[in-house]
Nucleic acid binder design. Structure first.
Lengths: 251, 251
DNA sequence: CTATTACTAGAACGTTGGTCTAGTAATCGC
DNA sequence: GCGATTACTAGACCAACGTTCTAGTAATAG
């Protein structure tokens, strides 16, 4: 099984070479030099830890990812992990960036049609995150600064720039799109987090109906049928891209 | 100190009366009957627990909210909490809905201008969530089904309905707006979660510059100066509302 | 006056993230 | 070659956590 999902062979990055001793070792794994001068196919490495952490998270969820379990699955002692990693939070950082690497990066696009490639990219991003539902809660926990996350962000910026979004609004547009994806994933994954999703959805539906005096509009119009999530995401994204298109200097 | 923040007196709801024995007690606190038949000003209650949990979270953060600490601040034993609440997760559910109650609900709006009130509402929602930065990671963890959350959701739906959003797209539009807010809050709060925000931001800025070969666009155009967050949120929201406006049947 | 209900709480269990200390095997300077 | 250093591993241990078990108390009901 080892790394459950189908795993597209998307481009990955993992630079963290040298990096002139940024001695204000601020928070994140990505900004710290790593403890490695690969001598001879080290049996344990950040890469193996990251990959196995993703596998554990996929199959057992956040709660059951413990340093001991992770170490056991890697065939090593629990304390050994702390040589490669400072805290459990580091492991989560690594795991999160690992899955960002699964989002395929289209080639830098031709300027004629930016909308479809952009839309496709955002859909794929969302899909990958939903394939690893544990990622959603983590997104609000740490800045996304891993190499894979930054590469995706770079693509987003470059695409919007090519699409004619004026420079003063570039960051805001990228930020907005990415926030829309993240929010959608969070909302969607929230229903998955608590055990049996359809049972909860039924209960929630009942709840709305039972209090339809308080929630008339929702009781009448909101039906969280199963396919709705994807269509709603697309629909909302289109509102957004419409607005973006209208204000981007057409080129 | 008791409940740190300024606390606007927004409308609050807390119905969970009777509720015909929904014996498939699915996941959430909100769908279960509570353990209370108020006899005589019970010294401990869900309300007091929720309020104090918010206070602890505000001042000390998620990590340091423990059942023992919470109980101590309530002047009671740790185990006592478990009479009122099933798990710590329940406490978080209660705390989260508690702060949703801080978002002021405008009066059902006149049909002439829906855009400003809607925009103001979403801004306020975001502001409240950012005032309690611990809320962001929780949003991707559980469906929002507390009475206060549902009331806000109801307002959103009602507003969009009044704005002329056609019924088949109503849920999608509401979903999209709410996801945009949630995503923005998550991204924003992520930087706040790890200790010193400005230090991390500087380090990240350096990181981008140091690898400007990999991230040319971001290195050149992205500056996460301090005020940018608010303006970016507004800007992105306007893209969205533009698109929405264009497709909503004008009325 | 007894039974029941609403609620409180100490002690304890298993598990967790993390540290301390001690070790081993390979490489490097000489 | 050889001692010192570096890269890495790991057992024992710690404080703290969420939660359960069991035992209680105070008030109401009959």
């Amino acid at each position: 099984m080892e790394n459950g999902t189908g795993q597209s062979q998307a481009t990955r990055q993992s630079h963290d070479s040298a990096q002139p001793s940024n001695s204000e070792a601020a928070g994140s794994v990505w900004l710290r030099p790593r403890q490695v001068t690969p001598r001879q196919a080290a049996p344990l490495s950040r890469e193996r830890i990251a990959a196995e952490a993703v596998a554990v998270l996929d199959s057992d969820g956040t709660q059951r990812l413990t340093m001991r379990r992770l170490a056991e699955r890697l065939g090593t002692g629990a304390t050994t992990l702390y040589w490669h990693v400072d805290t459990k939070d580091d492991v989560l950082d690594l795991a999160l960036d690992e899955i960002f690497g699964e989002v395929p990066l289209p080639a830098p696009l031709a300027s004629d049609g930016w909308r479809e490639p952009l839309s496709a990219f955002l859909h794929q991003w969302r899909t990958v995150l939903l394939q690893h539902p544990w990622s959603a809660p983590l997104l609000g926990t740490r800045p996304l600064m891993g190499p894979n996350a930054l590469a995706r962000s770079e693509f987003l910026h470059a695409t919007l720039l090519a699409a004619g979004v004026p420079q003063p609004h570039l960051a805001a547009a990228a930020y907005a799109l990415s926030n829309y994806v993240i929010g959608s994933v969070a909302t969607r994954a929230a229903w998955h987090a608590r055990g049996d999703e359809s049972a909860i959805r039924r209960a929630a539906q009942n709840h709305l109906q039972a209090h339809h005096a308080s929630y008339p509009v929702q009781a009448e119009h909101v039906t969280m049928a199963d396919g709705d999530w994807d269509a709603s995401f697309t629909h909302g994204l289109n509102y957004f891209l419409d607005g973006l298109h209208a204000r981007a200097s057409p080129q």
